[in-house]
Structure formats: structure tokens, C-alpha cells
């Protein structure tokens, strides 16, 4: 905790003191999501690992048939991640109080790293809260996969002619747009997943923690992490025990990049003046154009030859 505070302090001091320009850029870094943005509260204490959410997602998004059927529990033997063939996966973590299951999918960040890293603007954060992706403009640089702090986007490497990013889109096209919950939420038999406005979900989450403080860790994962995420998690065991990264900090990923982006206008405006100035200072009186080596040298060579 101490280290993180120190880092944060350094970052803020650095940004404030280094450049006037970066201050301006900093101002836009506090977007907290659309007020009407939807989200899902995931209560890990209720999940039994039935994998019906995986099956529902597969059907809704018309993904390929999996190698291992959805009722096969053997997949829990290894930790999986979302791929082009599965937008959501459930992993099992053996804990002292029995297994804890964790569902993984896109967390639909308020300020998505994928969106800010994309140089063709393929990603959109919709006002409903979904992070969707336009495959028509994707060049395939896969920078979003590098940037995503949750390792969510998958890529259809198998396609030679039209490989694209594949990730959970909150069932935006078929459901969210019409105010309906995503397929995984609808099918969940244990009410692990609660769909609602993000702001309300945070209240519900804190309420549950307050009512049964012994049952939960006093933290909603995603409330503040990397600027806040649309999907929020409650857990009975420390989050880093069940595959969450506790070291991400609360700043959106783009804040890291702003220090560099802030220097761009500076370089663009100062360098030309500085270096043309150097040129004038270091080359006295000599007209330029006729003192260039390959000309000058060959000239003198010719003169030498004439002599």
C-alpha cells in the first residue's frame, strides 16, 4: 500500500511540475462513466461453477462449438482466459473454505485502455456502458490486447483474410441496446449476476457488505480500479487469491501515457526554432547549398585534377 501511494504521489507531482501542457491533458483524465451506464455485480460467494453462463454466451454470440462440452467440469483443472472462441470463462480456485469460482469476461471499463490505445478508433464506449468494437476498421496491430489490464481481448489468429478482435460486447447488439440484460446474467441459476445501473450496483454491493461483513472482503473490485469498471465483483476471499490483479491502481491506464502525450506539442513547437537557430549560430556567413561535402569535395578533386 505504501509503495503504491508513493508511486501515485510521484506520478501526480511529476505531472504537475514537469509541464504546463500535461496539466491540461490531465484534466480530461477523470471521466467516471456515463450516468446511465449499466453494469453487472458479480457475487463470487454465490457461484457454483455450473458454466451455464459460458453456454448462454456461446449461443447468444454464435460462437463455435467448444471441444469440451459445457457440463464438463474437467476444464477447471487449468486457468483459462477469454479467447476468440469463448468471450467468458469460469475458473476455479481452491480455497480453505472450499472452491471459489470466478467468471472472467470484459469488464467494460469507464475509461477503457483498449479504446485509448487504438489508433483507428475501433472501440466505442456506448452510453449504455458497453465497450464495443468495430471490426471494419481494425488493422490488427493488437495494441489493445497489450493495453488491456485484464487480458480480455482475443484475436482470431486462425483467419488469414479477416482476423479480428473478439471479446465480450455486453450483448450490446442483441440485448443491451434494448435495455435487456446480457445472456449470461439471464441464465444464471444462482443469481450470482445482478444487472443494473452501475451507480445502483455499487450501492447494492456496499449494502451486502454492510449487512454481512463476515461473509465479504470489504471491497468492491472494479468500483475504482483503473478508473472504474462496468462489471463489479464481491468476494469472500482476498481478490488476489482468485485471479484478480490488486496492483493496478485506481488511475485509468491512459494516465500513464499522458506524460508522453504532453511532451508532443512541446517538441513540435520548440524543436524547429531550436535547431534552425543552432544552424544559424554554427554556420557563419556560409551560404548553404554550396558547402556540401559530396559537391565540395568533388569540386576540389576536380580542381586538383586540373592542376
Amino acid at each position: 500500500m505504501k509503495r503504491r501511494d508513493f508511486l501515485k504521489g510521484c506520478m501526480i507531482c511529476g505531472a504537475a511540475s514537469s509541464l504546463g501542457i500535461s496539466k491540461k491533458a490531465w484534466g480530461s483524465g477523470s471521466f467516471e462513466g456515463y450516468p446511465e451506464g449499466m453494469g453487472v455485480l458479480v457475487d463470487l460467494t454465490r457461484c457454483i461453477g455450473c458454466r451455464s453462463c459460458e453456454a448462454a454466451c456461446n449461443k447468444e454470440q454464435q460462437l463455435p462449438e467448444p471441444k469440451v462440452p459445457f457440463d464438463d467440469q474437467s476444464v477447471f483443472e487449468e486457468k483459462r482466459r477469454p479467447t476468440e472462441a469463448a468471450y467468458t470463462v469460469v475458473n476455479r480456485y481452491e480455497q480453505s473454505g472450499g472452491p471459489v469460482y470466478r467468471k472472467v469476461q470484459c469488464n467494460h471499463c469507464n475509461e477503457p485502455a483498449c479504446l485509448t490505445s487504438c489508433f483507428v478508433n475501433a472501440y466505442t464506449k456506448t452510453k449504455e456502458g458497453a465497450v464495443v468494437y468495430n471490426s471494419k476498421v481494425c488493422v490488427g496491430c493488437r495494441n489493445c490486447m497489450i493495453a488491456c489490464p485484464f487480458n480480455v481481448p482475443g484475436y482470431s489468429y486462425s483467419s488469414a483474410t479477416n482476423p479480428v478482435i473478439k471479446k465480450c460486447i455486453f450483448c450490446y447488439d442483441t440485448r443491451l441496446k434494448y435495455g435487456k440484460p446480457p445472456a449470461c446474467v439471464e441464465i444464471c441459476p444462482q443469481e450470482v449476476l445482478t444487472f443494473g445501473h452501475r451507480n445502483d450496483l455499487i450501492k447494492i454491493g456496499h449494502e451486502r457488505i454492510r449487512e454481512t461483513p463476515d461473509k465479504y472482503v470489504d471491497h468492491i473490485y472494479g468500483e475504482k480500479e483503473v478508473g472504474g469498471t462496468g462489471w463489479l465483483y464481491l468476494s469472500s476471499v482476498p481478490f488476489d487469491k482468485v485471479g484478480f490483479d490488486n496492483t493496478l491502481g485506481n488511475e485509468p491506464i491512459i494516465s500513464n501515457v499522458k506524460e508522453f502525450l504532453g511532451t508532443v506539442p512541446m517538441v513540435l513547437s520548440i524543436w524547429p526554432a531550436l535547431f534552425t537557430g543552432f544552424h544559424l549560430l554554427s554556420t557563419r556567413q556560409k551560404g548553404h547549398g554550396d558547402d556540401h561535402g559530396h559537391d565540395a569535395h568533388s569540386k576540389s578533386e576536380q580542381e586538383g585534377a586540373k592542376k
Partner: peptide, 11 residues
């Protein structure tokens, strides 16, 4: 076609 000027890769 499509611009993402906030991205470092764009630069």
C-alpha cells in the same frame, strides 16, 4: 479512414 488521435500508435 478512421482516426484515433489519442493513441500513441497513431502518432
Amino acid at each position: 479512414v478512421s482516426f484515433g488521435p489519442a493513441a500513441v500508435l497513431f502518432l
